[in-house]
Simulated scan of single mutants.
Amino acid sequence: MVSKKSNTSKRCTAEFKRDAVALALSSEKTVTEVARDLGVSPEGLRGWVKQAKIDRGEGPAGALTTAEREELVRLRRKVREPSTCARASATGFSLGTRGLGVLIPGCGPLGWL
């Protein structure tokens, strides 16, 4: 059911979340009652149900699916990481190699320092 992330927070497995959503959608009980039975917060279970509906195409227009959210996170991380070109350029400028015609592989037509 739950995998430990840290001392203070608990993370539920994807399988547990999927089963909890299925139970919440098929049960005669309220989401709050199902959440209490499973030992999770009602807000968390509501979020899982909402995301499951979005993933099935039943959400509001413009809502991101789980796959789209994961891709966005990956791309944001990539943007935050300095590229090879940026690191090489910064190193080149700090070492005074500007203008020596150093080609940085993979940096395209602007790969010359």
Rank of each mutant, 00 (worst) to 15 (best):
Arg77Thr: 06
Cys107Ile: 10
Leu23Phe: 04
Ser41Glu: 13
Ser26Trp: 06
Ala14Ile: 02
Ser6Leu: 00
Arg77Ala: 13
Ala86Tyr: 12
Ala88Asn: 04
Glu43Asn: 13
Leu103Thr: 03
Arg74Trp: 14
Thr8Tyr: 08
Gly108Ala: 00
Arg36Tyr: 05
Gly108Ile: 09
Lys29Tyr: 08
Ala14Gly: 01
Gly47Asp: 06
Leu25His: 10
Leu25Val: 02
Arg18Gly: 05
Ala63Leu: 15
Cys107His: 01
Leu72Val: 05
Gly39Pro: 15
Ala24Tyr: 09
Gly108Asn: 01
Val40Pro: 00
Ser41Thr: 14
Ser3Ala: 07
Thr84His: 15
Thr97Arg: 07
Leu95Phe: 09
Glu58Ala: 05
Glu28Asp: 15
Arg80Cys: 01
Ala20Ile: 11
Leu110Arg: 01
Gly59His: 08
Ser41Met: 09
Ser83Asn: 10
Leu72Glu: 15
Gly111Trp: 07
Arg56Thr: 11
Pro105Met: 07
Ser27Phe: 05
Arg80Lys: 14
Thr65Ile: 03
Lys4Met: 05
Val34Leu: 14
Glu70Ala: 12
Val49Tyr: 01
Glu68Arg: 10
Arg69Ile: 12
Thr91Leu: 04
Ala63His: 08
Arg80Gly: 02
Ser89Tyr: 12
Gly108Asp: 11
Val2Gln: 00
Lys10His: 07
Thr13Pro: 10
Phe93Gly: 03
Arg87Leu: 03
Val40Ala: 00
Gly106Lys: 00
Ser94Leu: 03
Arg76Cys: 01
Glu71Cys: 07
Asp37Glu: 15
Cys85Asn: 02
Leu23Met: 05
Phe93Lys: 04
Leu64Val: 11
Lys17Ala: 11
Ser41Ala: 04
Glu71Thr: 09
Leu38Ser: 13
Gly108Trp: 04
Lys29Met: 02
Gly92Tyr: 00
Gly106Ser: 14
Ala63Pro: 08
Arg11Gly: 08
Leu45Asp: 09
Arg56Gly: 08
